[in-house]
Design a protein around this nucleic acid. Structure first.
Lengths: 353, 353
DNA sequence: CTGAAAGCGCTAACAC
DNA sequence: GTGTTAGCGCTTTCAG
């Protein structure tokens, strides 16, 4: 059996109440020598408070629930958890994990497991940038959405700024002199079941496409819809789509890909067509999956998804919500361009437009 | 304020003790109609037990601590957590996360945060297969090591069977007809040139190297130390090492790489030397980092690290330890070969040996 | 079969 | 200034 507060109190010859105050720094009105006695007793006994008892009494578990939709499987997940963890730890909070899958019933169950354990707040993380419906049970406790937002923005949330990220990528390409830029987007309408209901097409796809068009227009480059295509967001999808875009006389000199996996597929397509990267073709990806970006040749220039920062921010907000009840805010986290070696000026700047 | 057990009891017109028994399935000796009344009351009120209070009383938190050394950053982490989570969930347990970094002091603090919260057991996970020293605080509570083991095997642990995995990879290569097989090992833990197996090296490096030699010997293939090298385990390391191995007349017809990142580097080296994979050169990796294995061309044949299974097993053991106190056991989890397209019979089977 | 009572280990009012 | 008392919400003897 662990040593209890009463043991410390007994040894210091004070009441457990006094010991409690001393140990919690609320010893404003306690004689210095008493404080000392308690401190040495605690030290001598190796006293560690029972957080359960403390929580029960103080109605604060110092625990934040982290609910995710399989997020934990993806390489992104780690960064979000780590970021959240990091700031939680700094404030003496711990993270209680729960995972939800496509099964609605199971998801409710997972959430309740968290709530039953009296978490002070919950962070709801999704694998992909999504618009979700906040589970009803959450309306009572402070909640923040991570990599997701509610459609009415009534819950504080943090999402990547896909628009600005795509904009940076496109501006980079244009600044390098590219005028004919292909865009391989994610195939819209892939609905995945989840605890959280999917609305329309993923915000990432919508925003990046918007940025693609806006940047071109801003630079007076006529829209050419044959330069844009959609495919499943994996290497095969990227390869097939890139082949279609590149295997023609008026091929684009640069490709902006929805993600790094597709960009890897585009590399394969380019090589099969005898196109060297970046000499004959520039490629920009999205996600900054370092595993991929550094594994392919040449290393991929891509846009970073700021999962670590989002994780940190989400936890900071969650903790803030415990003190004050602030207005819900949704933060769009910047996605910086990470320049590697897959972009260069075009060999033969196209003369059209 | 949430509805308490006493509310349910009051509504059902029984004592809270009775309500408790009913709700916990220990209603062996309670009249059916009383049971019903309690049940409908609980339902009507939407009663959810307060897990904190329950834990405090029953001295069982139904929570397992998951302590990891930054593991959460790596793409492997997710699978371990997910596996653990999955079985925890099935048994009504939750996962409390803590992260430790290189800082000893901070690590002790993290562990204590878990213990203070009265976790019933803790799982200690490491990013890489390692031999670790079990923290002293852990000796009191049930613990299982995940992807790590103690040097005296006195703590139950699960690690990947790197030896068998490497053996399978090598047997595959040999079965395909390869006799000259290069091995690019990790250099961590041994900065000396030369190819001596060194106890300070990570188990993964030691075991895979051992398997490499054993398989060759078993098939009567003479050892040729010029076919073996070490490098940092990243794409650049792999490229440099592979170039050294391949840029010579008696080059190997196949390469076994320490991990998929190095294998990706080997791909680059091969292409620069005009070697086609798998026609001119077969490559096998390790880890089955799907992100990489599917992104490079051709898709990489590699050995799977069974993180999901290890996570599951670790949690199962942890839960088992709560009931019975079994003997510590260490499990070596199989690492299956995942065949893709980077292996083919050699073009020109070497005539030597 | 069911209820009363006694805590689990701690904190927060309120006396002294 | 410090100790006493009363719970936080639940489970678990032990009477009846």
């Amino acid at each position: 059996m662990r040593v209890r507060l009463s043991d410390v109190a007994a040894m210091a010859d004070v009441s457990s109440a006094t010991a409690s105050m001393v140990l919690n720094g609320k010893a404003g009105a306690i004689r210095p020598d008493t404080i000392d006695r308690v401190l040495v007793a605690a030290e001598a006994l190796g006293y560690r408070p029972n957080a359960l008892a403390r929580s029960l009494r103080s109605q604060q578990s110092h625990t934040i629930g982290f609910l995710s939709d399989d997020v934990v499987t993806t390489p992104y997940a780690g960064a979000m958890i780590l970021g959240a963890q990091e700031v939680a730890d700094k404030h003496g909070f711990a993270l209680l994990l729960a995972n939800v899958d496509s099964d609605q019933e199971a998801s409710r169950h997972s959430l309740e497991a968290l709530l039953d354990r009296q978490v002070d707040a919950v962070i709801c993380a999704t694998m992909y940038h999504r618009i979700i419906e906040v589970p009803a049970q959450l309306t009572n406790s402070p909640a923040v959405l991570l990599n997701a937002r509610s459609d009415d923005n009534s819950v504080t949330a943090v999402v990547p700024d896909d628009y600005a990220g795509a904009e940076a990528a496109m501006e980079h390409l244009v600044a390098m002199g590219h005028r004919r830029i292909g865009f391989i987007n994610d195939r819209a309408g892939n609905r995945r079941p989840g605890f959280i209901i999917d609305q329309t097409s993923p915000p990432a796809a919508v925003e990046r496409e918007q940025a693609y068009h806006d940047v071109l227009r801003r630079h007076g480059i006529d829209r050419d819809d044959t330069l844009q295509t959609r495919a499943p967001s994996d290497p095969t999808g990227g390869r097939v789509a890139a082949t279609a875009l590149l295997d023609r006389p008026d091929r684009p000199t640069a490709l902006f890909c929805y993600n790094d996996r597709m960009a890897a597929g585009a590399y394969v397509a380019a090589r099969h067509l005898g196109l060297a990267i970046p000499e004959d073709l520039s490629v920009v990806g999205f996600d900054n999956q370092v595993l991929i970006a550094e594994a392919i040749d040449p290393p991929l220039t891509t846009v970073q998804l700021p999962h670590l920062e989002m994780g940190r921010w989400a936890m900071e907000q969650a903790l803030t919500l415990l003190d004050e009840n602030a207005e819900p805010r949704v933060r769009r986290m910047p996605c910086p361009l990470v320049e590697r070696e897959s972009v260069a000026p075009p060999n033969h700047p196209s003369a059209d437009t």
